[in-house]
Design a protein around this nucleic acid. Structure first.
Length: 219
DNA sequence: GACCAGGCACATC
DNA sequence: GATGTGCATGGT
């Protein structure tokens, strides 16, 4: 049972890697930028997130302490291109408030915390759900946690590896119970699923088409 | 103009 | 517990 999934998950990874090559994720210069991007990209095209982050960088605002002091409405105006800018400004403020007031504004000060404990804390913040929390844990804090997103779900669904009812946790467990818990592997795997999703697994499409590397996958 | 994009929170039944 | 809705920009 377990070895079946281990085999198929490995095969998917192998095909994706051969087709797309290394993805070099997360596209950010610092761990803090990863956190900001993780919140800004919620249900939003990454290109729009880049514009928002560029607005902050251009003004040297991309640091926990600076954002902590920046008025929320001003932050909202700057991240406007990322969409949902008012709620996302509130979420970013809540995140940096947590980081500054509990950890001196330094992500490096989270290094002693257990992953599970950290995940619970992140999830307790407003606007940080499972995917955002896990993106921060994996890509900013380098914890071996698998990130599940809409593409992951869609791809697994399309190949019959999960059912419509599968929730976030169930899909995450599929990976984490059938693969080695390695940061580099999870980093690359999630990035590859996103790459594949963007190219070949868009919402309206009902099945894979050539040259999707998974099109004739035996599942 | 419709549909989509690397979600999440909250109201209502 | 399940389902529906608001949040909003920019690309195809």
């Amino acid at each position: 049972m377990s070895s079946y999934y281990a085999g198929i998950l490995e095969e998917i990874y192998r095909r994706l890697y051969r087709h797309f090559g290394p993805q070099h994720w997360w596209p950010a210069e610092t761990p803090f930028e990863v956190c900001v991007g993780a919140i800004l990209t919620q249900n939003t095209n990454w290109r729009n997130v880049e514009r928002a982050i560029e607005n902050l960088k251009a003004r040297d605002l991309l640091s926990p302490q600076v954002l902590y002091e920046l008025p929320e409405d001003l932050l909202a105006a700057l991240i406007r291109p990322a969409g949902y800018f008012r709620v996302k400004a509130r979420r970013l403020k809540a995140f940096v408030r947590w980081l500054v007031e509990n950890y001196g504004g330094g992500l490096e000060n989270l290094s002693e915390k257990e992953t599970e404990e950290l995940r619970r804390e992140l999830l307790s913040l407003p606007g940080i759900g499972p995917e955002t929390a896990d993106s921060i844990l994996l890509y900013a804090l380098e914890r071996p946690v698998f990130v599940v997103d809409a593409y992951t779900r869609r791809i697994l669904l399309r190949h019959g590896l999960v059912t419509e009812e599968a929730d976030y946790h169930e899909i995450q467990e599929l990976f984490m119970e059938n693969m080695p818990l390695e940061v580099e592997l999870f980093n690359e795997y999630h990035a590859l699923l996103v790459a594949c999703g963007k190219h070949f697994c868009r919402a309206r499409k009902l099945r894979c088409e050539a040259p999707c590397p998974l099109r004739d996958l035996q599942a």
